Amino acid sequence: MPHSSLLPEPGARRSFWIGIGWMALSMASFIGMSIGSREMAATLSIRQVLFFRALVGLFVIAVFIRGLWPELRQMRQFRLHLLRNIVHFTGQYFWTIGVVLLPLASVFALEFTMPIWVAFFAWAILGERLTRARLLATVGGFFGVLVIVRPGIGIVDPAAGLVLVAAMAYGLSLVLVKQLTRQNSPGAIVAWMILIQLPLGLAAALTDWRPVQAASVPWMLLAGIGALSAHYCMAQALRRLDASVVMPVDFLRVPLAALAGYSIYGEVIDVWVFLGAAIILGANLQAMRAERRR
C-alpha cells in the first residue's frame, strides 16, 4: 500500500491543472494577438496597430479603474513607469514588424531569447549575480538563434534582428517591472501601461495614419483583448506553477504558432526553427535547474 505522503495532495493536483489551463489560455491569447496584429497591418500602419491595441486595452481597464484610482493618483515611481513603457512600446513596435514579415513560429522562437536578456539586465540594474550557468545559457541561446536565422545560407531577414531587439526590450521591461512591484500592485502596473502607451501610440500613429475600415474592428478587438489576456493568464499560471514548469509548457507556443501559420497563411513549417527554439529552451532550462540547486 503506497504511503500517502508520497502522493501529491488533491489540492496540489488541482492547482497544477488549473495552472496548466491558464497557460493554455495564455498561449492562445499570444497567438490571437499576433494574428489580430497581422490582419490589422494588412490595411493599417504598424503604428496604428499599436495605438488601436492600446485603445482596446483602455476600454478593458476602464471597468476596473475605480478600484485602482486611489493607487494611481499617488503616481508612485511614475518616472520608472514612464521609462518601462517607452522601452516596452519600442519592443512591441519591433515585435509587430516581425509578426507581419516573418512566419509566426520564427517570431515566437526568437522571442525565447528573452530570459537571457532578463538575466543580463538583472545583473546590470538590480545587481543580481550573473552565474556561470546563466553565461552558458547565453552562449546556448546565441547558438540557437544562429540555427534559426542560419546566416550564410541565403540572405538573413532583417526582421529577425528586429525581433531579437524586441526580446531585449521585453527583457529590460521585465526587470523594470520587478522594480515597480516594490511599490505598485500588478493592476496599477497594467493600468499605467495602457495610460502611457495609448498617447505614445497615438502620437506615432498620426505620423503614418491610414483610413480605418470596419473590417479591421474585429481584429482590433482580438489583438487588444489578446494582449491583456496573455499577460493576465501568464500571471495566473505563475501563481500556481514553478517557472521551471511554465517555460517548457510555454515552449508549445512555437509548434502551435507554426500550426496556426500553416493553417491560416500557408506558411512552411521549418524544422530549423524548432531545432533552434529547442536549443534556446534547453539552455535556459539548464540554467534554471542550476540556479535552483545553488
Rank of each mutant, 00 (worst) to 15 (best):
S4T: 11
L6P: 05
L7Y: 06
L7G: 01
L7T: 06
P10D: 03
A12H: 00
R13E: 02
R14E: 03
S15P: 00
W22V: 06
A24W: 11
I31G: 01
S34G: 13
I35E: 03
I35W: 06
G36P: 11
S37L: 07
E39V: 08
M40V: 05
L44Y: 05
R47S: 13
V49I: 06
L50A: 02
L50Q: 10
F51Q: 10
F52V: 02
L58K: 04
V60C: 05
F64G: 11
I65Y: 02
G67P: 01
Q74G: 10
R76W: 05
Q77E: 15
F78I: 15
R79C: 14
H81A: 09
L82C: 09
T96K: 04
T96R: 09
I97F: 03
V100G: 05
L102E: 00
A105L: 04
A105D: 14
V107A: 09
E111S: 12
F112Q: 14
I116T: 08
I116S: 08
W117R: 03
V118G: 06
F121T: 07
F121D: 14
A122N: 11
L126A: 15
R132W: 05
R134K: 12
R134L: 06
L135C: 06
L136A: 10
A137R: 01
T138L: 09
V139A: 12
G141L: 13
V145Q: 03
V147T: 09
R150H: 10
R150Y: 14
P151D: 13
I153A: 12
I155K: 10
V156I: 14
D157G: 02
D157S: 09
V165N: 00
A166Y: 02
L172I: 13
S173M: 07
L174D: 10
L174W: 08
L180R: 10
T181E: 14
Q183A: 15
S185P: 00
G187H: 00
A188S: 14
I189M: 13
V190K: 02
L200A: 04
L206C: 09
V217M: 06
P218F: 05
P218R: 03
A227N: 11
A227M: 08
S229P: 10
R239S: 00
R239Y: 00
A243V: 09
V245R: 12
D250P: 09
L252P: 13
R253F: 01
R253S: 07
P255C: 09
P255L: 08
P255H: 11
G261Y: 10
Y262V: 03
S263C: 04
I264T: 01
I264R: 00
Y265E: 04
I269H: 09
D270H: 07
D270N: 14
V271Y: 13
W272I: 04
W272C: 04
L275S: 13
A277Q: 08
A278P: 11
I279A: 00
I280L: 12
I280Q: 09
G282E: 03
A283V: 02
Q286K: 01
M288G: 02
R289W: 01
